[in-house]
């Protein structure tokens, strides 16, 4: 009974992970611009990979495999957002065009490409008191 349940759970996690990665790939082809593609690929893709690795841990069910699988999962979950952020940021500031359906862009006109200063757009007073507290500049 337990064995059957464990096998079912392994198969389910494998299929879920594979499905997520397939959706990520479909999204990579279909979605219209760089940031939206990042939403689909880096996160759904990484989550799918983590799920399949978890299925491996469940399938072998011994300490050495589980420890290594946990290491892979932690690593993937830690690095996926960092990679997404890095690529998205680099692409955005390099000037990759956004989709024409984009409704709002509050960043573009507050960024100065010469000095690399990014204004917060809050009232001047609030910004100054914040700057004084930490005294940090670009």
């Amino acid at each position: 009974m337990t064995e059957w349940l464990l096998e079912g759970l392994t198969a389910l996690m494998l299929l879920l992970g594979g499905g997520l990665m397939l959706i990520a790939a479909i999204g990579a082809v279909r979605l219209p611009d760089l940031p939206t593609r990042l939403h689909a690929t880096t996160k759904a893709g990484a989550l799918g990979a983590a799920l399949t690795i978890a299925a491996v841990a469940l399938h072998f069910a011994c300490i050495s495999v589980t420890a290594r699988a946990a290491a892979v999962i932690v690593f993937i979950v830690l690095t996926a957002p960092v990679a997404a952020h890095l690529i998205g940021r680099a692409g955005y500031f390099v000037g990759v065009p956004l989709w024409e359906g984009t409704v709002k862009d509050e960043l573009r006109d507050r960024y100065d490409p010469e000095s690399h200063v990014l204004r917060s757009g809050l009232t001047k007073q609030a910004a100054e008191s914040g700057g004084k507290q930490r005294g940090r500049d670009a």
């Binding site: 940031p35 990042l38 939403h39 957002p81 997404a84 952020h85 998205g88 940021r89 955005y92 960043l107 507050r110 200063v117 990014l118 204004r119 917060s120 757009g121 910004a127 914040g130 700057g131 930490r134 940090r136 500049d137 670009a138």
Partner: peptide, 9 residues
């Protein structure tokens, strides 16, 4: 997706 933090944080 977080893009950037403003310079004054």
């Amino acid at each position: 997706l977080s893009l950037d933090v403003s310079t004054d944080r």
